[in-house]
C-alpha cells in the first residue's frame, strides 16, 4: 500500500499539472524609475512628506532634547551614541527589558538604516543604534535620528541599504487608521508621536 501523498507533494503536483504546457513567462520589463532627477532636493522633499504625514521634524544634534519633549524615561538601544543622549530625561538602555518595563517608558530614541524622500519613509532593520523591534513599538513616542547620508530619493535606492533578512520596520508617519469613513486619523496602537531629527552635516 502506498502512503497518501503529503500535502506538500500533492500541492506541488497540482501546480505542475496546472502549468503543463504553459511555457515560460516573458522576462519582466524594468522601465520604471529607480531614482529621482539629479537636481531633486531630497532633504527638502523628505521634510515635506514627513510633515504631510504628521511627523515633527527637527534639525541638528542639539534639537534631540526638544524632540524628546517632557519625556521622563527614555528607552534607548544599548549601542546608541552617547552624545545623542541629550536633555533632562533618564535614558534606559535596553538590555532585555520586559514588556512591562517598556510600557513604563515615555519615549524611545533610536537611529535608522535609511530614509526615503519620495514617501517620507524611515526604515529600521535592527542594525546600529536601532535596537530590537519591541522598543520602537511599545513606547508612545518615537524620536528617530536620520543622518544626511542615510537619506535617498527613491525606494529602489533604499532597499540595498537594508539587511534583507533582518527584521525590518518601515515607518511613514505615526500610527494611523483610515478605517472610519476612510479618513486618516493619527494614533492607534503604535507610537502616536513621531519626531525626526535630521543631522545635516
Amino acid at each position: 500500500m502506498s502512503a497518501r501523498p503529503t500535502a506538500r507533494e500533492e500541492i506541488l503536483a497540482r501546480m505542475r499539472r496546472a502549468l503543463d504546457g504553459a511555457g515560460e513567462a516573458p522576462v519582466p520589463p524594468r522601465e520604471y524609475r529607480r531614482s529621482l532627477d539629479a537636481d531633486a532636493d531630497i532633504t527638502a522633499m523628505l521634510i515635506d512628506r514627513l510633515v504631510d504625514y504628521k511627523a515633527n521634524v527637527h534639525h541638528g544634534l542639539a534639537s534631540i532634547a526638544a524632540a524628546l519633549g517632557d519625556a521622563k524615561r527614555v528607552v534607548v538601544p544599548a549601542d546608541l551614541p552617547e552624545d545623542w543622549r541629550l536633555g533632562g530625561a533618564e535614558f534606559v538602555p535596553d538590555t532585555g527589558l520586559s514588556t512591562a518595563d517598556l510600557d513604563g517608558t515615555d519615549a524611545v530614541l533610536t537611529g535608522c538604516a535609511a530614509a526615503v524622500a519620495v514617501s517620507g519613509t524611515i526604515m529600521l532593520d535592527t542594525g546600529a543604534a536601532q535596537g530590537r523591534r519591541a522598543i520602537t513599538l511599545v513606547p508612545d513616542h518615537h524620536v528617530v535620528v536620520v543622518r544626511r547620508e542615510q537619506i535617498v530619493g527613491h525606494l529602489a535606492e533604499a532597499l540595498p541599504m537594508l539587511d534583507p533578512v533582518a527584521p525590518q520596520t518601515w515607518i511613514s508617519g505615526p500610527s494611523a487608521t483610515s478605517d472610519i469613513e476612510l479618513q486618516r486619523v493619527e494614533g492607534v496602537h503604535g507610537p502616536r508621536r513621531l519626531d525626526v531629527v535630521l543631522l545635516e552635516d
Binding site: 514617501s119 530590537r132 533582518a166 520596520t169 511613514s172 508617519g173 476612510l182
Partner: peptide
Amino acid sequence: LPRSSTGERMNPYTSVWTGAREGDG
C-alpha cells in the same frame, strides 16, 4: 500597493521578517 489601496504614498507601517531572530520577536 499603498497608493492603490489607501491612497497614501506609503502606509504607516510595513513589517518584514525572516524566520525567527534571537532576542527579537
